[in-house]
Simulated scan of single mutants.
Amino acid sequence: MATLRTLDRGLEAINVISRASDGITVQELATALDIHRAAAYRILETLESRRFARRGTDGNYRLGSGVLAVSHRFMAQFRVVSQPVIQGLANEVGMTAFLSVEDSGEALALAVAEPVAIESLGIRFQVGFRHPLRRGADGIAILAQRPPRDGDSEAVRTARERGYCVTSGENQPGAVGVAVGLGEFDALQIEASVGVIRLGGLSDLSVEDVLPHLDKVRGELRELLVSS
């Protein structure tokens, strides 16, 4: 498939900048893109004019506010297309289903659905609900997708080994949930997890029965991310 070379380089430049936590110099970008320094400078000037990049006082370039605005719009659009998938999951398993994404170090509920055939059982899990990543099946499932670190909790290590996370009573007393991560950030450019939650204890949730449904929905959501 033919691509617009200049546009492709500009988009790749945004990708390169996003990976540089301390910012990136003109020469570093030129090296990463295998282009002349002057060409890298023109790309950065263009990105800066559109607020997709900004130059700091140290001379390094970092992502600009324009990227954040696009990110928020993407999240809104992704929620719309993912909501029917999450609703289908809720109907299949008869529990509250959710899609959570990483946002500023927290797990943010992007889409939530209740099963249509079952009356609400008082699960306090709604769109916009957020909590630290280290707590709750959705947050721990996201952390488990990251490379191992010395400071990983036992819950994260267990979830990484199993491929899923189960928690009880962490974000809502008397509720149990299970979640799986959608995949590594490098593949999707987003950190997310999908899962279900219900009232009860660990013995009330059949993980073996739920996991096939979560695996199927994970694949559907990954397809939506790749095609979005």
Rank of each mutant, 00 (worst) to 15 (best):
R50M: 15
T46K: 13
H72I: 14
D138Q: 00
A97G: 01
A39C: 10
A69V: 14
G163E: 04
L108V: 06
A53R: 01
L121G: 13
R50S: 15
S120W: 07
I86S: 03
P147R: 13
G88E: 08
R157M: 03
S120V: 03
P115Q: 09
S100A: 13
C165I: 00
T96I: 02
G128V: 10
V116D: 14
G139A: 07
G59D: 02
E154K: 07
E119M: 15
E102F: 02
R134M: 01
P148A: 03
L89M: 12
R134Q: 03
T96S: 03
A53K: 01
D152Y: 10
I43D: 14
S120I: 04
R55E: 12
R135Q: 06
V166I: 15
S65V: 15
S153Q: 04
R160F: 02
Q126L: 02
V80D: 08
R42P: 06
C165Q: 02
R73H: 01
R135L: 07
R130Y: 10
D152R: 14
V85N: 05
A53L: 06
S82L: 11
P147F: 11
G94C: 08
E161L: 05
L68R: 09
E92S: 06
L89Y: 10
G88P: 01
A137W: 00
Q145I: 00
G136E: 02
A53H: 09
Y61R: 06
A107F: 03
I140M: 09
R37L: 05
V116A: 13
G122M: 01
R135Y: 06
A109M: 15
P84I: 06
V85T: 12
R124P: 11
